[in-house]
Amino acid sequence: MSEQKIKVIITMVGLDGHTTGAEVISRVLRDAGMEVVYLGVNQTPGMIVNAAIQEDVDIIGISAHASNYSLIEDVISLLRGSGVHDVPIVVGGNVPRHTITDLKAKGIAEVFAPGATGDEIINYIRANARAQNERAA
């Protein structure tokens, strides 16, 4: 009966309305024993950051299927600007290879491209979410 549940935000950003990926991964993470705060569509970077602070989540997952990468960069800078440095942001979706490199250079911890398995994502989150680091400390 572990109470160190990993808490995750799953969200889209901007006008990206492709919810299926986000809904599937929410369910996968739930079944892996995580607590998923599902924010849904039409989220501004500011709304995502506010939710991350109020929900005190351990990791943020952005589902991206609309090439709105500058908004994802805004989430990074807003979150870090609010003094939250220990919560990684990951992205999942049909992200081109060169964009993956760009996003990682700008502070996205990991990008899960098409073909990534549920287990890969679960294992990554378990190893890298904030709660995990705190427990090791």
Partner: peptide
């Protein structure tokens, strides 16, 4: 009750107040 996980979806309905 099976995995101990949860999907917390209430916030979704209140998103207009997120900012």
């Amino acid at each position: 009750p099976f995995s101990g996980g949860a999907v917390l979806g209430d916030r979704l309905r209140m998103m207009q107040h997120s900012a």
